[in-house]
Design a protein around this nucleic acid. Sequence first.
RNA 1: GCCCCCAUCGUCCAGCGGCCUAGGACACCGCCCUUUCAAGGCGGCAACACGGGUUCGAAUCCCGUUGGGGGUGCCA
Length: 467
Amino acid sequence: MTTRVRFAPSPTGSLHLGSARTALFNWLFARSVGGEFLVRIEDTDAERSKDELVQSVFDTLDWLGLDWDNRGQEPRQSTRADVYRQAVESLVADGRAYACDCLRADVDARNEAAGRPPGYDGHCRERGLEVSDTTVVRFATPGDGEVAFDDVVRGRVSFECANLEDFVIARSDGTVTFLLANAMDDAAMGITHVMRGEDLLNTTPKGLLLRRALDGGGDPIFAHLPLIVGEGRKKLSKRRDDVAVENYRNAGYLPEAMVNYLALLGWGPDDGVEVRPVEEIIGQFSLEGINPSPAGFDPKKLAHVNAEKLRALDPKAFLAVAEPFLADGPWTPEDFDRDVFLAMAPEVQSRVKTLAEVPAMVDFLFLPEPIMDEASVAKAITNNDAAPALLTGAIESFATVEWNADSLHGATLALGEAHGLKLGKAQAPIRVAVTGRTVGPPLFEALTLLGRETTLDRLRRAAPPAG
RNA sequence: GCCCCCAUCGUCCAGCGGCCUAGGACACCGCCCUUUCAAGGCGGCAACACGGGUUCGAAUCCCGUUGGGGGUGCCA
């Protein structure tokens, strides 16, 4: 039997970190054992499901590079209403499910009056109501015994049936709930391993009961992944945390960095090498290696992984991934010079953690005039007594020096010595005059690319008026 | 409340009875390198929640306590 796993998102929002991690682990597992990775759309909740979000989820999976084996034929639960309805009918006919017209408030009131804990009380179980548009259908759970399963991540997990309430499988509008559709489809698709978030652990016994009642074949193997938690060790939430994967894409994170970092949440390679190509991660991945405890999302480490991936790119590849961000640069598009950027690329790569930081690192190369940072100007020029002499000295020296990094380096060094300053101090006003900031890529290399005329021009503009 | 899960540095991961004086990574702090800033190199800080067992031996196994989290919808 071929190993077959699935990622089953509900299109109620753009793909978020937790779902992406679930998709990734399913994908890693499938690829590591030569199995199939399928996608299924769980849109049984018509109220909240949005069609365009299906596409957005696909786009994000594509961006992450998680290719699925049923592309273009992803089952949608909204198209299988008839199949589900038949199942519900047969369950009712067999006496394993029944109609219920209780209102939430009534159930609560009864429980309170009887001093019972919350949860459905089985009130309609023996009433023999007809299923109609004013009733839901509930599954009649066994009164005793237990439902247990072996979870690859957690070991044996068991639930007492007595604690399982008669849960809703069909709504009053006739549509079915996740529990039923999910159990039926996993069986129908021949899913061998169900990997999902731990937040679904409690629904597993219900799904299992349903599967068994509908004769859905044997139980699949379960693996409940640890939750990804944010600030305060709570499950990642839209309110508190930045959870949309596309936000990270827009912020300049590489898909391979996201994949690599996410793989490290709840799992780690045996050899301890954390940042590595995804092919190697596939080679190392194993279900048994998954850690059961919740994993905290650490934006700093993600940034570090991203920085490492960025640095590993060759200049051309770096230009390619930076292109969308460069398009938003403050310069006129025609003034952008690919060759200049390529020459500067390695220096930029070791200085940024995200692609969003790239434009500000190179803008002075493509702008007619640098954007002068106030604080930088104040520190290195206005409030620097040595600045006037250094700038005028540089104008003089740079006018005739041979135009390459080594010579510029030497000229600036000599200029500094003449004023009793080390190179670090000597280059500061020059850097600000030319680039607009006190920090940036190596100065002399940048000057080489900028050219003598532009450099002198900027120095003159920053230097005090002659005389 | 009830049900379920979890428990090693601040965080992630390693450890699956002796190799642990508990290892690696991120973050943080020093030092070195250095044209700024990075990158890089070197070093430092820092954890087995607690209490009982089991065992010659426990971070590793069992029980309990405590703590944390998840679920408890006509959401998934």
